[in-house]
């Protein structure tokens, strides 16, 4: 799980152009949207594309996004459970 979390942080920084952030700046449990990383709705779409492109996982129900993208850890857990 730790290796996946580390990889995911790198992918998010690259995909979302978070150039001023380093992996160690991202708390595994902090909210991705709002107060935490401060991501927006376009970033949410990018994360959905990232899951499909890098892990072959489609988020079929957009309503699930809120739970999946709560934090880096919840995202990693979702990938672990659904990876093909």
């Amino acid at each position: 799980m730790d290796a996946l979390i580390d990889q995911l942080k790198g992918e998010i920084i690259e995909q979302l152009n978070l150039e001023d952030l380093k992996k160690e700046d991202i708390d595994n449990e902090a909210p991705l949207f709002g107060e935490g990383l401060g991501l927006d709705s376009i970033d949410a779409l990018e994360l959905i594309v990232l899951l499909e492109k890098n892990y072959g996982i489609k988020v079929a129900n957009p309503a699930d996004g809120k739970k999946i993208f709560q934090s880096i850890r919840t995202m990693a857990e979702f990938i672990e459970a659904n990876k093909k």
Binding site: Q15, L16, N17, I42, D43, L45, E46, V49, E52, K53
Partner: peptide, 9 residues
């Protein structure tokens, strides 16, 4: 085929 929303906007 992976369109990037952040690029498209």
């Amino acid at each position: 085929y992976f369109a990037s929303p952040a690029v498209f906007v």
